[in-house]
Amino acid sequence: MEEEGPLEQFRIHELIPIHFGSLNASFTNSALFMVISIAAVLLFLTLSTGARSLVPSRWQSLAEMSYGVVANAVKDNVGMEGWKYFPFIFSVFMFVLFANFIGLLPVPGKFTVTSHIIVTFGFAGLIFVGVTLIALFRHGFKFFGFFVPHGVPPYLLPLLVPIEIIGYFTRPISLSVRLAANMLAGHTMLAVFAGFVVALGVFGIAPFLFVVAVYGLEVIVAFLQAYVFVVLTCLYLSDAIHLHHE
């Protein structure tokens, strides 16, 4: 590698160049780590639940816990009407969770897929469009009543309806920015302080201890952000199904 700045870890480079005319569809390190994340999820879930014992092993109970976290999020926030969307929500959760954790591995050349806003926006945009379509198919034109708040004098509506509409379109932005910004900020901070460790020589022990502490925090954040992403997906789905605000 050339220079190793704290932002170097977010650089995308082409591993297998694929070009269709002006379209660059190369297989990048980002794509590679997406494949690794999916493979890791598949391996984790198939290997850990392969035994299907009544008393779960450690791996199996990990798999059951991740199922339980998402299942409870769906049940608490959407109710049983949302159960048919559980496979999608669980897949999103596992992918984001594993991409976050794989980005934390102290391996040279590692890449955090979820630190790039286009990836998280891809998910958030898909969820936004999907949830809107669900609402439209379920409620038809009544869906647009979602933007008209109840119990408000009519002369305030020209003010409140645009606000509600902006609020609706904010969802994919805030959903994607939150995840990407958390990953970006945490990893940059880790890299900056890790750089101090070498630069300060003996006194590098202070930033070293800090990095250890922040790394612990980042592990929590990696899980938490995957969880928050899924909970908000559930809330949006709940709005689409029940058609009242959160």
Partner: peptide, 19 residues
């Protein structure tokens, strides 16, 4: 199982405002 609410809420509200 594990519902870490407080910290998630803080992140959530902050980004909601900016977005």
């Amino acid at each position: 199982p594990f519902a870490p609410r407080g910290m998630g809420v803080a992140f959530r509200v902050a980004t909601e405002l900016v977005a």
